[in-house]
């Protein structure tokens, strides 16, 4: 937890304005100074291998909307092989809080393949660093051209957004069947305010208010746990894939920085009733 907090929002925000000019220069020139700093904070001296085709990271080269940039990663090695992936750090070098999220996959959980949406504040390398079953680190990277995503004004319809705060939605459950891989999408309505959005009337920053954890389980079996931060987009979305071993509720619990706890449950793979 200590390590995590260093690169995440609560501590990093006060540093942002001071650090930004230097970071921008480093990012645009392709200089790895920023990454070296992040890497030291997150992984110390541990070696990191290029993932090659073991980990595929996908993101648009140029984002259409910097506040909603689709990104996905897929680990291709069999779960129980030495290269099987247990966790993935999603890192946006030049964001104010570079660590967007850590996805943790229990050995019997979801496949290490996730699609989500992130905010990108300026042109930046994007990285997925996966830890394998035997404790090695492998990394895939992309470069994304986008700017302004973290400080971009929240939502297009503020009234509608507040009215559905905490509401959840599960898409794809209809097609799920026991013994077959099912890809589901969890949507959680939340402003995920970054703390970097300035309100001209109150002359203050909109306070940070974002999801910190998302835990997904099926019939009591943990599938995926996410430690999240401000770089996840408003209304966080997570696509994940798992094999239902029988009927049971899919449950989601999300927690935010203001102590909000949001629960959702849906029948999946033939579970009876509501």
């Amino acid at each position: 937890m200590n390590r995590r907090s260093i690169l995440m929002a609560p501590l990093i925000v006060p540093l942002v304005t001071l650090a930004a000019p230097a970071v921008r220069a480093a990012g645009e020139s392709g200089d790895g100074a920023r990454w070296a700093e992040i890497r030291r904070e997150l992984f110390g001296d541990r070696p990191i291998e290029p993932a090659g085709d073991r980990l595929v990271l996908e993101a648009p080269g140029r984002a259409e909307d910097a506040a909603v940039v689709p990104v996905s990663f897929t680990a291709t090695a069999p779960r129980r092989s030495p290269d099987g992936v247990r966790s993935v750090h999603l890192i946006i070098d030049n964001n104010p809080a570079p660590l967007a999220a850590v996805f943790r996959f229990p050995p019997d959980g979801a496949d290490p393949a996730v699609a989500t949406r992130i905010r990108i504040n300026e042109y930046t390398p994007l990285r997925a660093v996966a830890e394998t079953a035997d404790g090695r680190l492998i990394m895939a990277e992309r470069f994304v051209k986008a700017s302004g995503g973290c400080s971009a004004p929240a939502g297009k319809d503020q009234v509608a957004a507040l009215a559905r705060l905490g509401r959840m939605r599960l898409n794809g459950a209809d097609a799920a069947a026991p013994g077959r891989p099912a890809t589901l999408q969890v949507l959680i309505s939340h402003p995920n305010n970054s703390g970097l959005q300035f309100d001209q009337i109150s002359r203050t920053y909109v306070p940070p208010h974002y999801l910190t954890t998302i835990a997904i389980a099926h019939a009591g079996r943990p599938l995926l746990a996410v430690d999240a931060d401000i770089s996840l987009s408003e209304d966080p979305s997570i696509h994940f894939t798992f094999v239902p071993d029988g009927p049971g509720p899919l449950t989601v619990r999300a927690e935010d920085t203001k102590g909000g706890v949001f629960d959702g449950a849906w029948p999946v793979a033939g579970a009876p009733g509501g």
């Binding site: 302004g148 400080s151 971009a152 004004p153 929240a154 503020q158 009234v159 959005q197 300035f198 309100d199 001209q200 009337i201 109150s202 909109v206």
Partner: peptide, 16 residues
């Protein structure tokens, strides 16, 4: 009626 809030939120972004 919603213009003041929208302007307040977006003005810094637009100024840049």
């Amino acid at each position: 009626r919603a213009l003041p809030a929208a302007l307040a939120q977006r003005a810094p972004h637009y100024r840049e």
